[in-house]
């Protein structure tokens, strides 16, 4: 199939960018979206134009490295990662606009690549259980009811891709934040630091310049791992509890 692509090109973090238009031909519908960009890049390289920079690593939907705004949908029209989106989702002759995640907390580095280290810093503020290596009791010392273990797992599957931020009209990272809070909050191991964790992580979230959540729900609709809005409620509840406990 043949497509018209409008792709954001920006040479570096401080220069201005703009959408550039490219035509691609003979795209197979079995290609993944990123392979389609590979084909375009191969051509640009042969024509002497610098290839388009975009991030990806695992290309199987688990590392969270890829992420493009495709025709106004984070990761494209399907609920999956950009690397798992295939060209059969598009129609011959279609025009596709491709932009980087737009968030002040995720500055654009080049073309479609953004800096998501803000997420790492949020995790630094308590997104863990403080246990030193070697200090752990036997794994069976603390049973965890299956329902809780399952919920912890469901929320722990967040891949940190940032689609929630990219799609949220407020640029909020609440879904990401809520996923980690819920994961650790469900487990007995996570209880000791529960109050301080939520307060510190939310403080860093705000400090990074993410917006506040007003429960719009775009994030959960875009999340490739189907993290539900429940986690934001859980996040709010944990914060409210921390307020009550005087943190």
């Amino acid at each position: 199939m043949n497509l018209t692509l409008k792709i954001w090109r920006q040479p570096d973090p401080v220069s201005e960018g703009a959408l550039a238009t490219y035509q691609v031909e003979d795209i197979s519908e079995d290609m993944s979206f990123l392979e389609m960009l590979d084909v375009l890049n191969e051509r640009l390289n042969s024509e002497g134009e610098e290839p388009i920079a975009f991030d990806s690593d695992c290309r199987e939907g688990i590392c969270g490295m890829c992420g493009l705004m495709i025709n106004g949908d984070a990761h494209g029209p399907l609920r999956t990662t950009t690397c798992q989106l295939h060209m059969r989702t598009f129609k011959d002759g279609e025009t596709i606009t491709i932009e980087p995640w737009r968030s002040t907390a995720f500055p654009v580095l080049k073309d479609l690549c953004v800096d998501r280290r803000a997420f790492d810093r949020i995790i630094q503020q308590g997104g863990y259980v403080s246990v030193n290596t070697g200090a752990a009791p036997d794994a069976h010392a603390m049973p965890v009811p299956k329902a809780q273990a399952d919920r912890a797992f469901d929320t722990a599957t967040c891949i940190g891709c940032g689609a929630c931020v990219a799609s949220c009209p407020n640029g909020s990272a609440s879904l990401f934040l809520g996923a980690k809070i819920t994961h650790l909050g469900e487990l007995p191991q996570g209880q000791a630091e529960r109050d301080t964790r939520v307060v510190k992580m939310v403080a860093q979230h705000d400090h990074e310049g993410f917006g506040g959540c007003t429960n719009i729900g775009e994030c959960a609709a875009a999340c490739p791992k189907e993290i539900p809005l429940d986690v934001i409620s859980q996040l709010n509840k944990d914060l409210r509890t921390a307020v009550r406990h005087g943190y």
Binding site: S172, V199, D206, G212, L239, R240, A242, V243
Partner: peptide, 10 residues
């Protein structure tokens, strides 16, 4: 905690 966006929301 009381300085956070979530506190504002509350």
């Amino acid at each position: 905690s009381t300085r956070s966006t979530i506190a504002l929301k509350i």
